[in-house]
Amino acid sequence: MTAILILEQALNGLQFGLMLFLLAAGLTLVFGIMDMINLAHGSLYMVGAYLVATVAVASGSFVVGLAVGVLGTAAIGALLEVAVLRRLYQRDHLSQVLGTFAILLMCNEAVRMVWGPQPVSLNPPAALAGPVELFGGFTYPAYRLLIIGIGLAVAGLLYLLVTRTRVGMQVRAGASNREMAMAMGTRVQWLFTAVFAFGAALCAVAGGLLGPLLAVQVGMGESILILAFVVIVIGGIGSIRGALLGALLVGVVDTAGRTLVPMLFGLWMGGDAAGQAGPAVASILIYVLMATVLYWRPQGLFPAHG
């Protein structure tokens, strides 16, 4: 195990954690403000990735594909909130889980009907296809550096939006005390639609940027949705700051664990035993992290609700 390997895995974890943050930010706002469990959130991530891939191939430009995919997914999210989800706000959580799970299944089948069952190819921009040398012979993929840069920029802009604008003040008020926010004149219905559309746009950004690294395929949203829920549980429901910290923790632990744990097991056990036990232990590390955080702080690291 070398310092170069540790640095590379730390950058991979940072990149993955920032993409998880884009997913978890919208999810935690929906959960914190609307008190709604939205299992269809991962479907917006999937739809966004498909839209980005389709437009990028048709236009020949990854940037155009990403822009159109984000806008299209935001419009789909707003339409979904107005037409369907708005009717679930006053229902219990079980009804919300069942309703949004049905939407998830329908989205999977709709994507399969439109694009087919085979994965869709999405290539990164040609200018960023190769590695770049950072220092002392250490090279890292240029496209992953782009993802880190965009993730940090979006996180910074989201922080300024939530903490320095009137809309952000209304969002924070809604996350802390929805009834009081309504009593103070906040147009909660429009706020809900805007927040949901914004969360859908963030999903599309994550799906479009991760598309060249992961397979753009039917059902791709389910596995990453579980990680997004783990992030908001660790960070605290309704908290953007908690979502960022939780996403970075989960990203680093998951990415580094899948590489380093099998290597460590290989030093202690035989090759066959390490090959079986290492990946199994690495896959549960994020849940061990979640259990540890909840034991120490049951409401998460930075809960919006005091």
Rank of each mutant, 00 (worst) to 15 (best):
P124T: 06
T100V: 05
V154C: 04
G168A: 04
S121H: 13
T193Q: 07
E109P: 12
L161S: 02
L104T: 08
V114I: 15
C107K: 07
G149H: 07
E81M: 06
E81Y: 10
Y140M: 09
P212N: 10
R87T: 02
F138W: 09
L98M: 11
R164V: 05
R187H: 07
L85E: 00
L88E: 01
E81D: 06
L158I: 04
V111G: 03
L104W: 10
L157E: 03
P119S: 07
A201G: 09
I148C: 02
T193C: 11
M184L: 13
C107E: 04
D92V: 03
L104S: 01
M169Y: 13
L88P: 02
G130H: 12
L128M: 13
I147P: 04
Y159F: 11
S121Q: 14
R87Y: 05
S95P: 02
I103H: 11
G168Q: 08
A83D: 00
H93A: 04
F196E: 02
I150D: 00
S121W: 14
G149N: 05
A153H: 07
P124K: 15
L152H: 12
T193A: 11
G130M: 14
A173W: 08
Q189Y: 12
D92C: 03
C203K: 10
G207A: 06
A183Y: 08
I103V: 14
V205N: 04
R112Y: 10
L128W: 12
A181P: 12
G208D: 01
R164A: 06
L191E: 02
V114C: 14
V82P: 04
L202R: 01
A127P: 00
I150T: 01
P117Q: 13
Q90C: 00
L160G: 10
A204N: 11
R87A: 07
P141C: 05
L80I: 07
T193I: 15
T163Q: 11
A194T: 06
A197G: 09
W190D: 02
L160D: 00
G211Y: 07
L158R: 02
R112K: 15
G149I: 03
L210W: 04
A215P: 10
Q96G: 02
A173E: 06
H93D: 00
L146D: 00
V84Q: 01
R87S: 00
V154R: 13
L210G: 10
L210V: 12
L105M: 14
T100F: 14
A194K: 09
C203Q: 08
A183C: 12
V195H: 03
A183I: 12
Q189M: 13
A200Y: 03
L134Q: 11
A126Y: 14
A215R: 13
N108P: 12
G174P: 10
R178P: 13
G137F: 10
R164H: 09
R91M: 07
G130L: 09
R112H: 13
A155H: 06
Y143G: 05
Q118T: 12
R164Q: 11
V195K: 08
V167M: 08
A206K: 07
V120D: 00
P125R: 12
L88A: 05
L145F: 02
G199Y: 01
V162T: 05
Y140I: 07
T165E: 09
L80N: 01
G168F: 10
L105T: 01
I103Q: 08
V84G: 03
A142H: 09
A175Q: 06
A155N: 05
L94D: 01
V84D: 00
L145H: 08
I150W: 06
W115P: 13
A127E: 13
G208K: 01
L158A: 04
